[in-house]
Simulated assay, not measured.
Amino acid sequence: MIARIWHGVTPIEKSADYLRLMREVAIPDYRSTPGNRGAYVLHREEGDVAHFHTLTFWESEQAIAAFAGDDITLAKYYDFDGDYLLEKEPRVTHHDLYDR
C-alpha cells in the first residue's frame, strides 16, 4: 500500500471554510476513486495560519494516477483552492506502507 501526503496552508480566518470544503468535496473525491483505501484530513492551527495535510492510502501507483494524473508526484488542486491557500505547493510525497 502507498500513503500519499499533501500539505497546504490557509490564513486562519479561512480555515473553517476550507476544512468544510475538504470534507464535502476533496475527501469524497479521493474515496470514490477506485483503489483508494482511505482519506483523512489533518488540521493544525499555528499563529495566524492553519496547516492542512491530506493523508490518503492507495493500493497502487496506477490507482493514484487515476486520481492525480500520470505524474503522481504532482499535487492535485480543486477550483476553490486558489481562494484559500497561501501557496499551491507543487508536489506531494509518497511512502510505502507496511503493516508487518
Rank of each mutant, 00 (worst) to 15 (best):
H94D: 01
E46R: 00
I2C: 03
T54G: 02
R4S: 05
D99K: 05
P11Q: 12
R4Y: 01
T73F: 01
D70H: 04
K88F: 03
G47W: 02
D29G: 03
Y78T: 03
E59S: 04
F80R: 03
Y78E: 10
F67Y: 13
E61F: 13
V92R: 00
I5T: 05
V49W: 00
D96M: 04
E46Q: 08
Y78R: 07
D17E: 15
M1A: 12
I12S: 00
P90A: 00
P90Q: 03
E89D: 14
R100V: 14
G8M: 05
G35L: 07
A68D: 09
E59P: 01
Y77F: 15
A68F: 04
E46N: 15
R31A: 06
H43C: 09
S32W: 05
A16Q: 15
R37V: 05
Y78W: 12
E59G: 01
A66D: 12
K14T: 11
S60W: 10
H51P: 09
E59K: 11
V25E: 12
E87H: 07
I2T: 06
A3D: 00
A68Y: 00
H95V: 11
L42F: 15
D96G: 12
F52H: 14
Y77S: 14
Y30T: 08
G82M: 02
M1D: 13
Y78D: 07
G38C: 06
T10P: 10
L86S: 10
Y40E: 14
I5C: 01
Y40H: 11
G82W: 01
W58Q: 01
A63P: 06
A66I: 05
V41Y: 12
A3W: 05
M1K: 02
Y30R: 00
A68N: 07
P28H: 14
I27M: 15
R100T: 14
N36T: 06
T93Q: 02
A65P: 09
R20N: 13
I5L: 13
R20D: 15
N36Y: 03
Y40F: 15
D99L: 14
M22Q: 12
R100L: 12
A39L: 08
F52D: 08
Y18W: 13
F80C: 07
G82F: 11
Y98G: 14
A66R: 15
E46A: 13
P28Y: 05
R31M: 11
I5R: 09
Y98W: 00
P34C: 04
D81I: 01
F52I: 09
K14C: 09
R31S: 08
